[in-house]
Design a protein around this nucleic acid. Sequence first.
DNA 1: TTTTCGTATGAAATATAATTCATATGTGGT
DNA 2: ACCACATATGAATTATATTTCATACGAAAA
Lengths: 109, 109
Amino acid sequence: MKRKLSKACYSFFSTLANPTRLAILEKLSESDMNVKQLTQTLKQEQSMISHNLKPLLHCRFINSKRQGKSMIYQINCDTVTMLFKTLDSHAQNHCPEDGNCPKTNLLTQ
Amino acid sequence: MKRKLSKACYSFFSTLANPTRLAILEKLSESDMNVKQLTQTLKQEQSMISHNLKPLLHCRFINSKRQGKSMIYQINCDTVTMLFKTLDSHAQNHCPEDGNCPKTNLLTQ
DNA sequence: TTTTCGTATGAAATATAATTCATATGTGGT
DNA sequence: ACCACATATGAATTATATTTCATACGAAAA
């Protein structure tokens, strides 16, 4: 792995390692949304949503476009889909159905 | 995305969002290593290596097998490779060569 | 041009994660 | 059984990230 990529990877993974941001990605993968819509479906403060949108935007996992007073956010590309697909398959191979991880129980607690 | 997967994804991404653990994965992708070897190549305390191996093991990104007094760690599967490949391609599409991110400069600072 | 709505941002408070240190455990050799 | 080496672990310290609150900014309407 190249130095530059490793730096970028750390940034990418840090951005994805957050429940709110994962929830935002999940919602945006269903449809484009503005900030208010996100605050409503996720039941979170507006400032929290905005703060969490920032790193997603920065990593280019999402894009934004202004529409009048509101700002529309949309999933940028196939990267997110691909990542989730890979991890889904990993989880199916290694995470037992009952949720009890054989190694430790960090994952399910 | 299913509730269970989202939980697992958070665990996966949290585990990957750490420079030491990324470095461990990088080394282990080259060859299997025991803890002492990892402490030597990464120039880190033994306890730090062990602490960081734990979540990697838990997520099944790596496996371990005892060999006498030492414990050998190895990359578990194709998941890690696939993730890095996906992010490499993402970085190539969206991260400029000069390291100056067009959105913000969080990534390169 | 003042007001209102939607969004962004800075800074403080809070929560979470990483690192270190001391020590325990586990294995093999003497 | 004891010792030495390799690794793991718990707990305290330290560092980093998240959340909240107050407020600023931008666009459109009155």
